[in-house]
Computed example of a mutant assay.
Amino acid sequence: MEWFNVGRIVNTHGIRGEVRVLSTTDFEEERFAVGNRLAAFKKDDKKPTWVTIESVRRHKNFILLTFEGMDNINMVEPFKEGLLKVTKDQMTDDLLQENEFFFHEIIGCEIVSEEGEKIGVVSDILQTGANDVWVVKGAKKEHYIPYIEDIVKEINVDDKRIVIHVMDGLL
């Protein structure tokens, strides 16, 4: 089964079973909605525990979640430093608007210039607030490409190929 990360459980919070989650999804409202099911992977564990979200609230830069049937710290402590994931079936395209993509569709794409010069492959995506920045592993060094209209000209996730306009100072 193919899994996709939506959050990392960085710690517990209080004694009533809350976990502190660092989100790794653009769709927090949908992924962390009350009643939603997620696969919780304990640190270094390959088999998930399915959990249903009972409550959700924001606290500073974190999302605080409780899971149904886990109402004290002892029940959620084993999930500390674990991951929250969804399956490919849970990732529906109706969450996306035009010219939006899931991270897993962009990561692994080859970046080429409008002239056809190979620049590298997207290895990570940084969320800055203003726009996403793609980390691109080139042959000799790493590049940071902002996902903005002036730079990204064409995205073909089926062929894993992205064409960009190389502005002065970008590379």
Rank of each mutant, 00 (worst) to 15 (best):
M75S: 11
N74R: 02
D44N: 08
L65I: 08
T92R: 15
N72I: 03
A39L: 06
I119W: 07
D89F: 05
V86L: 07
N72E: 06
L96G: 00
L84K: 01
I125A: 08
E100C: 15
K60R: 15
Q127P: 15
T24H: 04
I73Y: 12
E110W: 02
G82V: 10
C109M: 01
M70R: 14
M70Q: 09
V56T: 13
L38K: 13
V51D: 06
N36Q: 04
I111P: 00
V56N: 13
E100L: 07
R57K: 05
G35L: 05
A40K: 11
Q97T: 03
N61T: 02
E110Q: 04
D132Y: 01
T49Y: 15
T52F: 08
V76Y: 07
N99M: 01
N131F: 12
D94L: 12
G35C: 11
G120I: 12
V56S: 07
N61E: 05
V34E: 15
K47V: 09
G116R: 14
K88M: 15
T92C: 00
I107R: 12
E115A: 07
N72F: 15
D94Y: 10
E81A: 13
L38E: 00
T92K: 11
R58Q: 10
I53V: 01
N72P: 07
K43L: 15
I125H: 03
K85R: 05
V56D: 11
H104V: 11
V112N: 02
K140C: 10
L38R: 00
K140E: 11
L126P: 01
I107L: 15
F103M: 11
I111S: 02
A139S: 09
A139R: 15
T66V: 04
L84C: 01
K118G: 04
N74C: 03
I63S: 07
F79I: 04
V56H: 15
A139W: 12
E77Q: 04
L64Y: 13
F79R: 02
N72W: 13
A40T: 02
F101H: 02
E30T: 10
K88W: 01
K141P: 04
Q127V: 02
N74E: 04
S113L: 04
G35E: 08
G108K: 14
G116E: 08
E117S: 03
I107Q: 03
G82C: 12
L38P: 00
K88G: 09
R58C: 14
W134Y: 03
D45T: 10
K141I: 10
F32Q: 07
E114C: 10
K43V: 14
N99S: 07
S123F: 15
G35T: 07
G69F: 11
R31Q: 08
R31T: 08
L83N: 08
F102K: 06
A139I: 06
L84S: 09
E29V: 06
I119C: 08
F79L: 09
P48M: 15
E28S: 06
I107Y: 12
T128W: 03
E77N: 02
E115I: 07
A39K: 14
G120P: 08
G69M: 06
H104G: 09
L65W: 08
N36A: 05
G138W: 03
R57W: 05
L65V: 03
A139M: 08
E68V: 02
F62S: 03
L126Y: 02
T128V: 07
M91V: 00
D132W: 02
E81D: 13
T66G: 06
E98D: 00
T49I: 05
T92M: 03
W50D: 14
I125T: 02
N36F: 01
R57I: 13
